[in-house]
Design a protein around this nucleic acid. Sequence first.
DNA 1: CGTGCTGTTGAGGACGATCAATGACGGTGG
DNA 2: CCACCGTCATTGATCGTCCTCAACAGCACG
Lengths: 265, 265
Amino acid sequence: MWQVNLGASMAGSMKPADAGVLNPLLRKLNSLGFHGEAELRCLVHKVKLRGSTPKGEEIVGADDTPRRLTVLLAGVACLYETLESGERQIYDFYYPGDFCDLHRYVKLEAVAEPAVRALTDCSIGTIDYRDLDRAIERHRKLALVLWRATMLDSSTLRERLINVSQRPALERVSHLLCEQLHRRRAIGIESGVVPLTQIDLADAAGLSVVHINRVFQDLRKLGVISASGRTIEVVNRERLAEIANFDSRYLTMPAALSNWDISAE
Amino acid sequence: MWQVNLGASMAGSMKPADAGVLNPLLRKLNSLGFHGEAELRCLVHKVKLRGSTPKGEEIVGADDTPRRLTVLLAGVACLYETLESGERQIYDFYYPGDFCDLHRYVKLEAVAEPAVRALTDCSIGTIDYRDLDRAIERHRKLALVLWRATMLDSSTLRERLINVSQRPALERVSHLLCEQLHRRRAIGIESGVVPLTQIDLADAAGLSVVHINRVFQDLRKLGVISASGRTIEVVNRERLAEIANFDSRYLTMPAALSNWDISAE
DNA sequence: CGTGCTGTTGAGGACGATCAATGACGGTGG
DNA sequence: CCACCGTCATTGATCGTCCTCAACAGCACG
């Protein structure tokens, strides 16, 4: 774990080594409406890189007392909770640039909260709350931007509820796959591979693994996903989106900036 | 619609007429960790009372361009969405003091968003975004407080997802009822009456009305709810909570204040 | 005194869960 | 290189929860 040094360089022109690592975060902040070199640097400056977290490992525990914000920089993780019954419910997936535990920043106090776990090998960065506090103090718009980030999560969560509550299995799984593809594309990954297991999808869809598998057979028969071994690969996005009745709007934040731009800057 | 005048009086000592109306909001802000006369007055001052909204009426439309924040002052409302299939999914219930459309404040731009509808006769108040912006500017902690309010909504939403995704019907309905009782108690209503229809519960639980009805029969046989006609009344809370496996923690915000108290005041 | 909305009841059927094996793959250590 | 093990995927059979359709009853409203 070491402090990132951006030097005098700007985000976009960072030295390749650092730039590559933190780019997802910059991209994310941008998509949330946080532009401007000074502001960006102010926050990105404070990111401490933590080692990589192997697949299956916990990134944020349920009872951790939060002292810093976690940002996913590479890999795929999930927000989840394990119920008394032993079932795991996945609330959300995280991709590079996503904040893993923003919900704890405003809540504080170690109430049992959902945890975050690596679904593939991940690498993460952290920002101490103290640094975050100071950054917000300096650039008030940052509070709005982070708030917006949590509202995007809410939006995803609502969609997840619809998915689980209303859609039949085939549509449900398709929808989930569509979401993954869309989010990966948003961070520059064009491939149709979804690096999750059927188990992960089951826990997100609220279906049994067995049934997920049967749905996969159907999707293969429909020529939507590849029949190859382990890895899930979508080979026909259009068809998939049709089946899923997918509307990606819930995943993106409208570009318009808030009143805060006028009144609070 | 008229501007509330608190005069020189403080929140707690307002003239009965006004005090009664705005008390739920004050209570809510308090529970979110927003104390202090000046701060409270600053915001409450700006509330404009709107007439009462009859049961069934829409309070916030799906495509409304938001210009003001809506606060529920009396009655019960819900956040919902109507799907292509015609099904209604209820995401959350609102009780007096709750903000109905805080999610729009940070999102802006008229994307289709969930709407809010009155489930009983309601009365609401509004705060213009401009006033809200100014209040936040003056008392920075207010941004945190409102952010926290949205995070509480998220918490409820996660619980709703668990409910729909993992719990069998009897437990599911019981859980929903427990939540209503708990939230009503939090605003000072001790009665066991839940002023919702079976239809409302069905749309929140993701179950058919028919099945909800059957679950109700069971709950009556178990002596948990009254057998009387229309109104739903819980007569044995303990039993209900047992059945539901209810843990109310997701509904309340830990009292602890944020770092912002130190760094941003 | 109809007309709606909500609640109630019955019958039949579908979707998905559960249980129980088996297969395939990848990594590990001998 | 092979044997072993754990994880993940696959398949079959059975069962149960909940849905759908359909009809009717009750209360509340104008």
